[in-house]
Amino acid sequence: MNPNVIMTCAITGAGDTADKNPNVPVTPKQIAADCIAAAKAGASVAHIHVRDPETGGISHSTEHFREVMERVREADTDIVMNITAGGGGDWIPDAVDPTRGGPGTDMQTPAERHAPVGELLPELCTLDCGSLNFGDMVYINTADWLREHARLVQAAGVKPELECFDLGHVWFARQLQKEGLLDGDPLFQLCLGIPWGAEADTETMLAMRNKLPENANWAAFGIGRHQMPMVAQAMLLGGHVRVGLEDNLYLSKGVPATNAGLVEKACGIIDNLGGRVMTPAETRAHLKLRDPKTGQTVTGGEA
């Protein structure tokens, strides 16, 4: 069991969820406010996407990310910031000509995906470690794209969170490490329950955990009703956890959640299992992240 747990709150994704729960933040101001609320509720890390403030849909705007980052950094509540760099990989076959991308297709090059990270230099950013049948669409991230993206993240001095949606993604992340494209102890996020990737159950989490490098830090999450069971399971298997409205819209059946409410519920699970949630400062030291105030890597003082 892991008694000292890093808790990530995934504030808002890119999915069509804003109409399903009025608490899903859309504007940069709302997203930043939820980062701060999650921190006050006990979260160690805020993982952020940004949305088009007018439509609530996907946005890759560096300026939207900048506004979120600045609002959070100016607050008196500390939290580690983790920017998504996995957008711009959605391919949906056209209904008339399935050899072409249809409405909803959203593709970016590795350099375009990396642009907000390279300019804003958060402590963490995601690196999605492969392609996937993601529901009815295909998320595209080829091996050479990943290598290029990993080099960009490495050159920026930002620590990548290696998002793995299936067992083969763990395999490729180990290959990135073998090729020298990952610095220090790698950080993995095991993403469970998304059709048609890794299932959200104990056997799958354990299989993926057992394939991680010996020096890896890791976390896991489940989507929807699997969110809280996977909090307990990840902690019991020695990992860290993630909750938030990106992955789950409900606090209980039929009850719309807030990000702070999900963090509080997960904190209760961790506390009842005999653990504690690490502070943002402890998280930076444990993962050897760059301090946003000094720009220096934080070492020592681990929980």
Rank of each mutant, 00 (worst) to 15 (best):
E264W: 02
M137W: 03
K265I: 08
G261M: 11
D97Y: 13
S59K: 00
E199K: 12
T283Y: 07
T105Y: 04
D166A: 12
V277F: 06
R51F: 07
L236D: 03
G193H: 06
D183R: 13
K211S: 13
M228Y: 14
K288C: 12
V24K: 09
G130V: 04
P28W: 04
G130W: 11
G244Y: 12
G197T: 05
D78M: 04
N272S: 14
Q154K: 15
V298Q: 10
E214A: 15
T283G: 09
M7I: 09
G300S: 12
D19H: 13
D136W: 03
V50K: 01
S59H: 00
L236W: 05
G261I: 10
G238T: 06
L249F: 09
T279N: 04
I83C: 10
N23D: 12
G238I: 05
A266T: 06
K293F: 02
M1S: 14
A155F: 02
A232M: 05
E119G: 01
P3C: 08
A266R: 03
A143L: 13
A37W: 02
I270W: 10
L146V: 03
G89K: 01
R100W: 05
Y250R: 10
P280A: 08
H240W: 07
P195Q: 07
S252T: 10
G86A: 13
A32T: 08
A32G: 05
H149K: 15
V5P: 02
N259Q: 06
L121E: 11
L167V: 13
T77G: 01
F172G: 06
T279M: 02
A115R: 14
L245Y: 07
L245V: 00
L192C: 02
V68E: 01
N21R: 07
T109Q: 08
M278L: 15
V26H: 00
G254I: 07
D16K: 13
L167N: 03
L190S: 04
A232E: 12
A85H: 06
A216D: 10
N2Y: 07
N23Y: 12
M230E: 10
D247L: 03
L181Y: 05
